[in-house]
Simulated scan of single mutants.
Amino acid sequence: MARSRIDDAEIATIFHLSGTTLVSASEQIDDTPSGSLLHGIMAAIAEHYSKNLSFEAKKGMAEKARRGGTPGVAPSATST
C-alpha cells in the first residue's frame, strides 16, 4: 500500500481500527497469519525497491558529475 513499512503499518492500523478489510485482486492478502506474512513481505520489498531506486539514481548522478556532466539534461546550444 505504501513505499514505507511505517506508512504501510499506519494505514493497516487505520483500516483495522475502522473495521475495514484490505482485499487484493492479485495477492492472497487476508486476515490469516499467511496473509499477514505476505503483506509484511510485500511492504518490505516495496520499501527496498524505493530506497534502492533512490540510491541508484543518486549514484548515477554522482558519476555523471564526476565525469564533468551537468545535473539533469544539458542545456541546448540555442538557449538564451
Rank of each mutant, 00 (worst) to 15 (best):
G68H: 00
E56G: 01
F55N: 01
S4E: 04
S26E: 13
S34K: 15
A44Q: 09
D31R: 13
G72M: 02
H48G: 03
Y49A: 04
H39F: 12
A65N: 05
T80W: 14
Y49V: 00
I14Q: 13
A77K: 15
I11Q: 12
E63D: 10
T20S: 07
R3H: 12
L37W: 11
D31I: 02
S24L: 02
A74D: 12
A9I: 02
A57H: 09
E47C: 04
N52E: 14
G19N: 06
V23M: 06
L22W: 14
A57L: 05
G68W: 04
T32K: 06
D7A: 10
A46H: 07
T32D: 02
K59S: 11
T20C: 08
G35E: 05
L22C: 08
S18R: 12
S26V: 04
D30V: 00
R3M: 05
S4N: 08
G19T: 03
G69L: 05
I6V: 06
S76H: 14
I45E: 14
D8G: 11
F15P: 00
K58Q: 09
S18V: 02
T13R: 15
L22K: 11
T70R: 09
T20W: 13
P33W: 12
A46V: 00
A25V: 01
S76K: 14
T78L: 08
G35S: 08
A77M: 10
I14H: 14
I29M: 05
I14P: 01
G60M: 06
L37D: 02
I45R: 12
G35Q: 07
V73L: 11
A12F: 11
D7G: 04
D31H: 14
G60Y: 08
G69W: 09
D7N: 10
A44E: 08
P75M: 13
G35I: 01
I45T: 04
R3D: 11
M1T: 03
G40C: 02
R66W: 15
M61F: 13
M61C: 03
M42F: 15
A2E: 08
A25P: 00
M61Y: 11
G72W: 01
K59I: 01
L53W: 07
S18Q: 13
D8L: 04
V73N: 10
T78K: 12
H39S: 07
A57T: 03
Q28G: 01
V73C: 08
G69R: 06
A65F: 14
